[in-house]
Simulated scan of single mutants.
Amino acid sequence: MSQGERELQEKFSTKRRADAFYNNQMIDYLNEHMIQFIQRMQFLFISTSDESGHCDSSFKAGDPGFVYVVDEKTLMYPEYRGNGVMASLGNIVENPHAGLLFIDFLQDQVGLHVNGRAKILENDQLKNLIKQTEIDKLAQFHQKRAERWVVIEVDEAYIHCSKHIPHLVDQKFLEDRSVDEPSKNTGDYFKVKSSHD
């Protein structure tokens, strides 16, 4: 918890509720229920900042299980080929603190925050963290698309309650809309590039 949290809890008289949350909902490791939750997630949001505190948030996705839980204090996710900017990775180089948010919009409408310290591992460095048999399984699972990995050492994990999380439907099981909406398959969905022309 931060000093800012405590100051605002005092100011707005929420300290009692906050203490109940800290005591009953927040832990410094991943319990079995959290691990099972992470293993079925298809995406996450990650927040990072550089050494000056300038923030960035990003979205990472893959097949269920793309986030690999090493143990109750460690998880990792793959970095696939992207736009080459490497904003999150660049921030991690300067400042290891990172926040992950997993949200289940489809089934239980609940979220999981995982905050900790991040580091970047190249594929050939994984042998220092997990067994070769697991490395081989990961290579097959990700079809050798993982260019490198972000490893998170867990400092705290806690629920994001379901109160304001909407229930969404996974359209890919209903219809393939990629043919009807080709603009979603381009890198200029928000028309930023065309505004420079």
Rank of each mutant, 00 (worst) to 15 (best):
K184C: 14
P182C: 15
I165C: 04
F173M: 08
H160L: 05
H167P: 12
F173I: 11
V151K: 00
S183Y: 14
F173S: 14
V150K: 02
A157M: 06
A157I: 05
H164C: 10
V151E: 01
P166T: 01
R177Y: 12
L168V: 05
I159C: 10
H167F: 06
R148E: 02
K163E: 07
E181Q: 15
K163D: 03
D155W: 09
R148H: 02
D176Y: 14
A157E: 05
S178W: 14
S162C: 08
H167I: 09
E156H: 03
P166H: 04
S178L: 12
L168P: 06
S162V: 04
D176K: 08
H160A: 04
S183N: 12
D155R: 06
H164Q: 13
L168T: 05
K184T: 13
P182K: 15
A157R: 00
I165L: 06
D170L: 06
H164A: 13
T186K: 09
Q171Y: 07
V179E: 12
I159S: 08
H167Y: 07
H164G: 11
Y158M: 00
S162Y: 03
S178Y: 14
R177P: 11
Y158K: 01
V169N: 06
I159L: 15
E153F: 15
T186Q: 15
A157F: 06
L174F: 09
K172Q: 10
L168H: 09
V150M: 00
E153I: 05
R177A: 14
T186I: 13
H164M: 15
S162N: 06
V151Q: 03
P182V: 10
W149R: 00
D155E: 11
C161F: 04
L174D: 10
H164V: 13
F173P: 13
S183A: 14
I152P: 01
V151D: 00
D180N: 09
E181L: 12
E156C: 02
S162I: 02
V151C: 00
E147G: 06
P166V: 02
Y158S: 02
E181D: 13
W149Y: 04
W149Q: 00
H167W: 08
E147M: 05
